[in-house]
């Protein structure tokens, strides 16, 4: 049953992605700026312009361009159907390669942040629901009013100032590792994992240390909605009939707490999944402040430079990832909650 559901959703997802890629492809070519202009800064003669335009493939009619995008040009392979996203007009590197380089950076950052945000947020939310008016509850109220309502970049800058400049106990916003340290060999692209795979615990620790401020900033901001959602759901669940009945049946407190959490978790899970999907592009401000070269930065660079292949690649990647995440959420829901029929 689950497999059929998954397959069906993947098929629908493919259709969605196809529509999306067609839309993006044609829409960005409607934008008013001409990407060729970037190449003719030195020499803007008509001949130079024509040559640049040709090298970008923009001299062909749009439908021919789309064909080239899908099937590649000539016999050198390439094309979307062969899994190639094209060549970036800014760097001349293959977009596949660039995404493969930048995406794990962002995923590493947000995954670690989410682990902490969820790991701390869920217990605090549960505490707040179980002891209303208690320390956890009051603390989160203050947090929500004061901290959670501010944008993450202001917190990032504050943390850098406090911990790096004033206290000197945190590293500077120099990315994921010290500039003097050689990163481990590229396996997954996530420095923490690659360092462990290479057996370099020192690099692993250093990466964690350099990532500590950006992760602190992100989880600080993310935990706000998570705590609130968990708290609301658990509080609501605790009023449910089956909780009352469980109490009447004399079930121990621990069992009841697990019951409540299990029933309350579904909406929180949905929220976490949606936040995660959003963060793939939404972590761009943190990436910029902490000099981390992630997918968000790549997307901004591509958009500002009107680098069509890169833009297309980023849109496709983020959409595909988001669809997969939503599918994963739904499957988890179905596994957790027997009432959800798939």
């Amino acid at each position: 049953m689950i497999w059929r559901f998954t397959l069906r959703r993947l098929a629908v997802g493919l259709v969605q992605l196809s529509v999306l890629i067609v839309a993006v492809f044609f829409l960005i070519r409607l934008l008013p700026a001409d990407p060729v202009a970037r190449f003719v800064g030195m020499n803007a003669s008509p001949e130079a312009y024509a040559l640049a335009e040709q090298s970008l493939g923009l001299d062909l009619p749009v439908t021919r361009q789309f064909e080239a995008f899908l099937f590649g040009e000539g016999n050198d392979g390439g094309g979307l159907f062969r899994g190639e996203l094209g060549t970036s007009w800014v760097t001349g590197s293959s977009v596949n390669q660039e995404i493969r380089q930048y995406l794990p950076v962002t995923l590493e950052l947000i995954t670690l942040s989410f682990l902490i945000a969820v790991g701390l947020g869920v217990p605090i939310g549960v505490l707040g629901a179980v002891n209303p008016g208690g320390a956890a509850d009051k603390g989160t109220l203050v947090y929500g009013l004061f901290a959670g309502s501010q944008p993450e970049f202001s917190w990032g800058i504050i943390f850098i100032f406090v911990f790096f400049v004033v206290l000197g106990i945190a590293p500077g916003p120099l990315g994921r590792l010290s500039p003097l340290t050689d990163p481990p060999d590229f396996v997954t692209g996530a420095i923490t994992i690659d360092a462990l795979l290479a057996g370099r615990v020192d690099i692993f620790l250093e990466a964690l240390w350099y990532l500590s401020l950006p992760i602190l900033t992100l989880s600080f901001v993310l935990s706000g909605p998570i705590i609130k959602m968990v708290r609301e759901n658990v509080a609501q669940t605790m009023n449910a009939d089956f909780m009352f009945y469980g109490q009447a049946a004399g079930l121990p407190r621990g069992v009841l707490a697990r019951d409540a959490l299990r029933a309350a978790f579904a909406p929180a899970l949905t929220l976490i999944g949606i936040l995660f999907g959003f963060m793939i592009g939404g972590a761009v401000l943190i990436e910029s402040i902490f000099s981390i070269s992630g997918l968000g930065q790549y997307a901004i660079r591509s958009i500002l430079a009107f680098d069509y292949p890169a833009i297309q690649g980023v849109v496709l990647t983020i959409s595909a990832l988001t669809l997969l995440i939503y599918l994963a959420i739904d499957v988890c829901q179905a596994l957790l909650d027997p009432r959800v029929s798939v």
């Binding site: 009939d241 089956f242 009352f244």
Partner: peptide, 17 residues
Amino acid sequence: RDIALIVQNPRSALHPM
């Protein structure tokens, strides 16, 4: 154990999951 309860609406009294 010694005192048990049965309520009006059994379907909401049992944990759905």
